[in-house]
Nucleic acid binder design. Sequence first.
DNA 1: CTGAAAGCGCTTACAG
DNA 2: CTGAAAGCGCTTACAG
Lengths: 338, 338
Amino acid sequence: MTRRATAQDVADLAGVSRSAVSLVLNGRADGNISRAKQEAVREAAEQLRYTPNAVALSLRSKRTGTIGVLTWPDRRHMPLALLGAVYTAASRAGYLLMMVDAVQRPTQVDALVDRRVDGFVVVAPELTAYPAPEAVTAVPTVLVNCFDDALAASSLVPDEVGAGLSAAHLLLDAGHRVLGVLAGREGLASERRVQGVTRATADAGLAPPVVVEAGHSVEDGYDGARRLLSSDLPPTALVCTHERLALGALLAAADLGLRVPDDLSLVSLDDGEDLASQLVPAVTRVERPDEVIATHALDLLVEQLRLGHPDVRRLTFVCPVHAGESVGPPRLRAMPTG
Amino acid sequence: MTRRATAQDVADLAGVSRSAVSLVLNGRADGNISRAKQEAVREAAEQLRYTPNAVALSLRSKRTGTIGVLTWPDRRHMPLALLGAVYTAASRAGYLLMMVDAVQRPTQVDALVDRRVDGFVVVAPELTAYPAPEAVTAVPTVLVNCFDDALAASSLVPDEVGAGLSAAHLLLDAGHRVLGVLAGREGLASERRVQGVTRATADAGLAPPVVVEAGHSVEDGYDGARRLLSSDLPPTALVCTHERLALGALLAAADLGLRVPDDLSLVSLDDGEDLASQLVPAVTRVERPDEVIATHALDLLVEQLRLGHPDVRRLTFVCPVHAGESVGPPRLRAMPTG
DNA sequence: CTGAAAGCGCTTACAG
DNA sequence: CTGAAAGCGCTTACAG
């Protein structure tokens, strides 16, 4: 906890001026400073374990090498995979991250602007419209998993409708004709995913799927699945818009004596929980490509910071399919008494 | 993206000196600056939307109002509940957080020291010995869920042995005499939790529990549970050291036609996944009190920052029990043919 | 080849 | 009651 050495300390020890220290340590000494003094400066710096004070550097350069992250920092929402990828891409580019709550009022965004972050990235846990606080306009900003049409900022989102389409096609291609959907009770992601499923069945000339607006918890999935599977014409396959719903469906199936995929097929859409593919049997899923999106977003931001001029883009990312062991052909069966 | 106003701008607009602006805006004007000029300064500041540059402030005050967080930022480890609580406590105290990877080499801790963070908090996802990088000694540091005996820093950890004891007692009190344990394959937390269970059975005069070192995934729990339940003298109750193991056990039980808790009782220890208590049936669990620990840790750090002198403490936190619906009396039963 | 000065934006003694 | 100066720690023109 002792005082850190400054450039002045190094200069004193080496017997040169402060400017000489700066030049040597920043590699602009040749042709300006004699060999001998250069060596003296380097030795002194080493001995004092000198590294420049980044705060002073920032004041002078008007750059802090810091990016503000606006996110949903509570345990139920924090978007792990997205944040991890943002972190990795940021540190690769030499940036540090300061994370604050995106929705808290009064916002801490002003505090970040005062601290002169070089840019902002908003990282939403799930696709959502995000009316950004005005303060973000102070520096280049990129929106991940969200958008604000009123803001001149790039926005990167997954193709949720396409994800729903892919999920439904997996089941239709396997021969299923009666699909059920376990959906969240609210949220744009859930809504669009259901749209995709509905469109796929319509395209195939089938009746629309039965949609249960269950919620987001395992228990919601359990209850919803029991409801669907106890109906008059029970679906032979379920699409779940969230991973915890898929888990609930799996548990409900087990309780009803239904085997997956023999008696019931299951597809889950990805919400960043890293859960569906871990289950037994592994649930076939349509991935939300968090890592790709986040990495791309940060690269875009860093590029803007480097160039100095904004470059607004709205990008949509395809959601790839990952086969598990939860999809099979439909089997006609007697109604379970639930 | 226009230039931010400075104190000089405010002074010019108000027709006073820079120092006057500072005094007025920091509430030290009375008796120094005339009412009229005070008002002028306030108006000018408002009009220019002036807020002080925090970088300049930091350079002068040698305080940044920033805390460095060392953690495990990949998706499989990031300790959500702990980080959430750290964030909340920090912002309540007026601090911002800069998060970096605790184990990456070369470490980014030096970058944080250069940026003059006021302190460090290390947040581990699971109890572990953590040989801290030397650079953290530059400022007050607190360790959460980890410890470094060689470091003069406070350390806050859960009582893992006690958690194991509590888990076992829940089952012993319900009448179980043959316990099985699904444990992680490595890790101090798993180790100590198993110790607790073993001690509890010994205290009760029983044979030691059968311990399966399964791993950490759902599939590991599934496989381990099937193994345990297919043995000659199958346990009537399982303790799982991790939540995903408990989920695996639940799925295995369903596959084997065993009802929880009628045919098999289940207790899970908490690893911050927020999963066990969400299942159907809700699994009885012994909580790792993440929020309490993290809040306490940050309060301790902030107190040290305020006082300016270190105050090293080693604190252990009790893990409370949360009853679910997965524990019942033992039932004698025929061996399932798994 | 080298040192003194200016300036990034702030606040706090210090003269008047 | 008010303004000019010093200084936090750096780098970059600018004189010599």
